[in-house]
Simulated assay, not measured.
Amino acid sequence: MSGIGELQESYRSEGTWPVGVLYSRSGITAIAETSQLQGTLLAVSEINAAGGVLGKPISPLILDPASDPQRYTQLASSLLMDRGVTNIFGCSASYSRKAVVPAVERRGGLLWYSIGYEGFEYSSNVIYTGPAPNQLHLPLAEYLFPRYGRKLMCVGTDYLFPRESNRIMRDLLSEIGGSIVGEYYLPFGAQRDAFVAVVKEARSLGADVIFSTVVGPGIAALYDAYAAENLDPAVMPIASLTTNEAHLQEMWFEPRPGHIVSAPYFETVQSPRNSSFVANYHQRFGAKRPADACAEAAYFTVLLFARALERAGTLDPERLRTEVLGLEISAPQGVVMVDPDNSHTYLWPRIGMTEAGRQFGVVAEFKRAMKPDPYLVNYVGLGRIDRDHGYEEIDNVR
């Protein structure tokens, strides 16, 4: 990983802003968290190259929890208690966030959490910069149900996020007379054969969509099982909340065009800001390492932190939290803002579809950033999201 040693050395020097970085480079969530780490490092290097914050560089202390929830807890506690760190950038899967939040709450720290999750949570010690359910689950439902049908086969890894995501989708389906024809939770180490059984059952039960919340290496196993059954994504696609370009790149085959993902960002987003981000990302980490939603969110999260730090002039979490609420910056996905109502972030929901070259083409996106609603308290029913938020189809592929 380019540059980690140098950054860790700078942590020990005087006159810096020390922060903790808690992303796994090994274990089941390493693909997503490597992207998050790289987005973090890119932002830190750009900020420091421009003179740092108030003349001082940001100095990350980077630790590897190895996808182990106990290690997340131990390392977060060590950062806060033994290393003098007050701000931590980290966590991917919900089990890791749940392991760290009690530590930052007890010690008065601040966790900057940059990945989509199941919602229904609030902590004054967390800044949530990944998508909430109304920015992730609802746009997927709005896109899927009119185009593909209302019968879902649900398959996910066995932990909190998939179970809560399926609960949300079940509630949405109940409004329109749809159904979940099957619901499977597989272990983190599930192999291709386990997914083949799920795919075969989806076909036999007449599912319209395979809804995936699989994480880690199981993502590739699911798409491989789908390909082995010679199914057509135009008829029954995999629709995912967790697949991204880094997963496509890691697969030993190229998935067929037509599978669907909901996310605020894809590498193919067309804007000068994103073109610059992608070019810088590839220059630092190599052309074969794609910029994905995990990397982009971690990247702009550090930019938000740096802007808040510039205003606060201190690493004190309460002061930083005060400054970041309502703060707006330009991110590769578009202009984002931390909502002062709930510490989540206005984001730009998009629908991507797999295409040749292991990429996603953006087929639908919002015309403006969407207010986060982690508890779905303002949800008024399917069919309103287009009208209320300017959901625009880019390419009528159905």
Score class of each variant (00 low, 15 high):
149 G>E: 06
150 R>E: 13
156 G>Y: 06
210 I>Y: 12
199 V>G: 05
183 E>F: 13
136 L>N: 02
129 T>M: 05
164 E>Y: 00
149 G>V: 06
125 N>W: 06
171 D>G: 11
169 M>G: 03
186 L>G: 00
120 F>M: 07
163 R>G: 02
143 Y>T: 01
158 D>C: 03
189 G>L: 07
150 R>Q: 13
200 K>T: 09
144 L>W: 02
208 D>I: 11
138 L>I: 15
142 E>M: 03
206 G>E: 12
198 V>K: 05
161 F>W: 13
161 F>V: 10
211 F>P: 00
118 E>G: 02
143 Y>E: 03
162 P>K: 04
148 Y>I: 09
183 E>H: 09
193 D>Y: 07
123 S>A: 08
195 F>G: 07
135 Q>D: 08
140 L>Y: 03
206 G>N: 12
181 V>Q: 06
119 G>P: 01
122 Y>D: 11
209 V>M: 00
163 R>N: 07
165 S>L: 04
186 L>F: 01
202 A>E: 01
171 D>R: 14
135 Q>G: 08
162 P>T: 06
120 F>W: 10
134 N>D: 09
176 I>F: 00
132 A>F: 04
189 G>M: 07
126 V>C: 11
158 D>K: 07
171 D>A: 12
118 E>C: 01
164 E>D: 11
180 I>G: 04
129 T>Q: 08
135 Q>N: 09
160 L>W: 04
181 V>F: 10
140 L>I: 13
118 E>S: 06
145 F>Q: 01
192 R>E: 14
203 R>T: 00
184 Y>S: 03
118 E>W: 00
182 G>R: 10
194 A>R: 14
170 R>V: 11
185 Y>W: 03
166 N>F: 15
139 P>Y: 11
210 I>L: 13
133 P>L: 02
141 A>P: 11
170 R>Q: 15
143 Y>V: 00
167 R>F: 09
190 A>D: 01
133 P>K: 04
120 F>K: 11
167 R>I: 00
195 F>K: 03
150 R>D: 15
133 P>Q: 07
138 L>A: 11
174 S>C: 08
197 A>Q: 14
186 L>V: 03
211 F>W: 14
125 N>Y: 09
210 I>D: 10
201 E>G: 05
147 R>A: 11
205 L>V: 13
118 E>Q: 08
180 I>F: 08
145 F>K: 00
121 E>Y: 12
174 S>L: 11
199 V>H: 07
168 I>L: 14
158 D>S: 06
153 M>R: 10
170 R>A: 15
199 V>M: 07
162 P>I: 04
157 T>S: 05
209 V>E: 01
173 L>F: 03
141 A>Q: 10
173 L>Q: 04
148 Y>W: 13
168 I>S: 03
182 G>Y: 10
209 V>Q: 02
144 L>D: 01
197 A>G: 10
205 L>P: 06
204 S>L: 14
134 N>P: 08
203 R>W: 05
124 S>L: 08
171 D>S: 14
175 E>P: 10
202 A>M: 05
121 E>H: 13
153 M>A: 15
206 G>A: 09
143 Y>Q: 02
198 V>H: 08
153 M>Y: 14
133 P>M: 03
200 K>I: 03
172 L>F: 15
157 T>V: 06
187 P>G: 10
123 S>M: 07
135 Q>Y: 08
181 V>N: 04
190 A>C: 05
